[in-house]
Structure formats: C-alpha cells, structure tokens
Design a protein around this nucleic acid. Structure first.
Lengths: 136, 136
DNA sequence: ATTGTTGCAAAGGGTTTGCACGTAA
DNA sequence: TTACGTGCAAACCCTTTGCAACAAT
C-alpha cells in the first residue's frame, strides 16, 4: 500500500471537473481545450499525465475503442459505449455483463478468461436526421 | 463495379500465403519478417499496403484490439479473439453472434445499432504454466 | 504499352517523456 | 522544506505517403 501522494493541483482539479460535467466522452485535446478556458497556459502534456493518473486512481476511465484517439469518461458505473460511424461521437449503452465463468464460453478457448471489451457501432440521432434512410 | 484490377505480385502472394499458413495473428512487422525469408528486400511499406488491400478484398482481416499494434488474421470465418494480458499473444474464440435487433438492446440507446466488437482478455496457456496461481 | 506496384525514406499524428522550474502539503 | 506536478519541446512509435523506378497484364 503506497500512501496516497496525489496532490490536488489546480490543473488536476479542473481536468476532473471538466470530465464530471460532460457526457460527451471527450478526447485528450478536447479536455485540453475545456481546461484552457480556466487555465489558459495549461499544457497538453499535463492533461495527458493527469488523465492517466486519474484513471489509475479510479476517478475516471479511458476508452480505447479500436485504434482511434483515446477518449475519457467521468462516469464510473458499469456501461458500454456505441460509436457513430459517421461523426465519431460516442454514446452510452447499459447491458447485462457477460458471465465469464460460463462453461460454454470457457470451453471455447484454452485461455483463462478474465475480462472482455464490448463496444457497439451505429448511427447517432443527429446523423440519422441529416441523412434519413441512407445506409452510407 | 470497378473491374478487379488487383495484380498478384510476388510480394502480395507471399504476404497472403504467410497469413494463411499461421494462426498466430501477427503484427505487420512480424508479417514483414516472415516475408523477408522469401523476398529479402521487400519493404515494410509494401507489407502495410498489401495488408490493407487484402483486407479490402476480403481475403484477410485486420484486428484492432484496443490501441495496440494492428494484427492480421488469415481466418475469415466469424470468430472472436482473446488477448493474453501477460504476453500479448492472441487466440480465437467462437461464440454466438449478438442479435442487434434485440428490442431490449435497441431500447437502451438512441443510436441505430449496426455492429459491435467483442474482444476478450485473459491468460494464455503458456503464461499460466509459467506463473501458476499468480494473479499478476 | 499501360498503369498498378514496389522500395525507399520522409512525413504524420497521437501520446509520452526529459528537464528545470514551480507549488501543494 | 520536500518531492510531486507543471510547461515546454523533443522524442516515440506505428502507420501512411510521395516519388521515381519496376513489372504484371
């Protein structure tokens, strides 16, 4: 057990606040822009470092969907995400967790299963409005 | 409909062959090393270009798990993947597809759901052997 | 002969890191 | 006072791309 040495600096506080106040799952540079309203000379490096630290502390979570830019989420309850294939925005979905001890599932691999990541893709309401009926 | 203009060059043939002959889900540079045995002066750029083209042709598939390096798979039947959290190797799992028209699922988001990605994580047989009983 | 493909090397883009200074506790 | 955190800028790493030469059809 290491002592909790993390300091609540202005920057860290502002980054955490920004994430708790939005449901837009922003990228690091979007967080950077938000925080700059309050702390104009904050650096992008500081934003990245703090997002990482806040993740480790369990205060926020990092979304790594495919190989796109990371996104960050201030919501910590169990939920999944859906990405709009047109605009890239991200929404939330709550579904029942998969039972990792399911013998049917376990029998299908010689790995010991410890976790999973389930992300959906689709079309967000805004993009649906813009091109109704269009598949692409 | 564009005519099928893709040429079967030595390089392309070798890359495809390498992927069809392994079940190791190699990264681009691993494919590069494999192909170099046959074509010593092949370039990494060519490997990347051909992996991309072979994906578009539906001959292979690209695995984008988290923000790690891309991996490539010569197997085209429907299956999922599990990544070893210790060594990073990848195995296969076959499970039933999720029904995207499930009203329960659809009611949980205002997106129109079109697809999903489900990847597992766990510990591979080799790593389990090396550190039996250890969680980390 | 045509034009898709290659090797090379440079560029790209998001993220990470080294350093000296600043600041929370 | 101590050592964690910051701003800056350079480094990183994988992947993509421009270009002139090459080769499949």
């Amino acid at each position: 057990m290491k002592p909790n040495r993390i300091r609540m600096t202005r920057q860290r506080k502002a980054i955490l606040k920004a994430l708790k106040e939005t449901d837009s799952h922003p990228t690091a540079d979007q967080v950077y822009l938000m925080v700059r309203h309050q702390i104009p000379n904050v650096s992008l490096g500081t934003v990245y470092r703090n997002l990482e630290i806040l993740c480790e502390e369990g205060a926020i979570q990092k979304l790594e969907m495919g190989r796109t830019q990371m996104r960050f989420d201030g919501r910590m309850d169990l939920h999944h995400h859906i990405r709009c294939v047109k605009c890239g925005c991200i929404g939330d979905i709550i579904i029942e967790p998969i039972n990792l001890n399911d013998t049917m599932l376990a029998s299908r691999t010689n790995f010991e299963i410890t976790g999973y990541q389930l992300d959906f893709s689709g079309i967000c309401p805004e993009c649906k409005k813009k091109s109704p009926g269009m598949v692409n």
